[in-house]
Write a protein that binds this DNA or RNA. Structure first.
Length: 120
DNA sequence: GAAATGACTCAAC
DNA sequence: CGTTGAGCCATTT
């Protein structure tokens, strides 16, 4: 669906070694205030491909969201992030002030365009 | 087509 | 610090 494609398009922009929160991705995808949809979209990503760097999206607390439904993929996520040079402190959390992705202006421009489009 | 679900977030206590 | 409850809406049953 178009909604998912927007989310994936944003996630694909996250550079290696940095992370974004669900809420942040939702905002940039023109889905302000709807972070749940991001989680739902990522759940449906094909993890066997590297098309979408789903591992770089974490929750607002700075930790990898775990869920029984993920059947172990949450653990894989942590390993992949460490492989990119991201450090986990004790408690399995990431220092957001250090690794949070700061979107370039062009991405913000696109987000604004999507937002305006939504108001028609 | 109504009801349930969800990798979330924020504010309030 | 923690727990709770409301908000949210595309997808799935």
């Amino acid at each position: 669906m178009l909604t998912y494609e927007r989310i994936y398009a944003v996630v694909r922009q996250i550079p290696r070694g940095q992370v974004a929160t669900y809420g942040q991705v939702a905002d940039l995808a023109g889905l302000i205030g709807k972070p749940r949809l991001v989680g739902y979209a990522l759940y449906r990503v094909d993890m066997t491909t590297d098309d979408v760097p789903w591992q770089r999206v974490i929750n607002a607390k700075g930790e990898v969201s775990e869920s029984p439904r993920r059947n172990g993929s949450d653990y894989i996520q942590r390993v992949m992030l460490e492989d990119e040079g991201i450090e986990f402190n004790r408690g399995g959390r990431i220092d957001l002030s250090k690794y949070r992705w700061c979107p370039p202006d062009e991405v913000i421009e696109r987000a604004l365009a999507l937002f305006r489009e939504r108001l028609d």
